[in-house]
Nucleic acid binder design. Sequence first.
DNA 1: AGTTGCCTTAAAGTAAACTTTAACCTTTAT
DNA 2: ATAAAGGTTAAAGTTTACTTTAAGGCAACT
Lengths: 122, 122
Amino acid sequence: MYSISEVAEQLDIKPHTLRYYEREGIIEPDRNKNGNRYFTEAHVNWLTFVKKLRETQMPITQIKEYANLYLEGEHTSLQRLQLLEDHQRSIQEQIHNLKTTDEMLERKISLYKEHLRTKEPN
Amino acid sequence: MYSISEVAEQLDIKPHTLRYYEREGIIEPDRNKNGNRYFTEAHVNWLTFVKKLRETQMPITQIKEYANLYLEGEHTSLQRLQLLEDHQRSIQEQIHNLKTTDEMLERKISLYKEHLRTKEPN
DNA sequence: AGTTGCCTTAAAGTAAACTTTAACCTTTAT
DNA sequence: ATAAAGGTTAAAGTTTACTTTAAGGCAACT
């Protein structure tokens, strides 16, 4: 069981952001008698996954959708699978796009280097 | 020479966005006698490049920096090269990050599929 | 008892990159 | 000459994902 600040430090997410995620319905931590949030290992695993999804541009709304499906139980696994597959496709598009621009930059950089080699140096 | 709406259509960027880019100092189109913007082939090439940079997450401020260096002339080519190299590094990091998550998703997707195969179908 | 530190909530603020609105002017077609 | 199409500007609004502020509660050390 981890306190909000422990989880925040572990995952490098601010406590406020974790509360925001709760408001958004992305996570529902347990509470102790004082009303303080407590996170289990499972919560931390889920948040780690969420972080990965965010880092790869999945919008909060979609993450929430996935979370809701999970809470609805077993019978939503097909929909969850489809959500993940959609996101995987988005990731692969992103990779493709980045690679294309990487190549373009590579060419442009070569030209700059060539130019700097042949011009009189400063 | 293209009007703002022609360029907008060609590049799939709204006219307003082009004006916004101008305010930000990213582009300086020519003007005709009526004050209307006119874009040359060179302008379009530059905007195409800008679009690629934006699509790969280069912030407007950095693009502006590159544009300013270009306008300052020849003697800034080393700095421009460095800007491009920095961005290339950022792109490669993004690719790496995306690939990692892609693999994680691949594993998770397999588990879901396995699960759906073995459970009684709906 | 007081202060420090961490917690709570609700609500307002921020940053980036546009996007929309409002008010107006020109040119072209009818 | 009048309306439609498309241009102009400045300024306000939007979206997403937080982040900060305000106002306060609780517990533990000194």
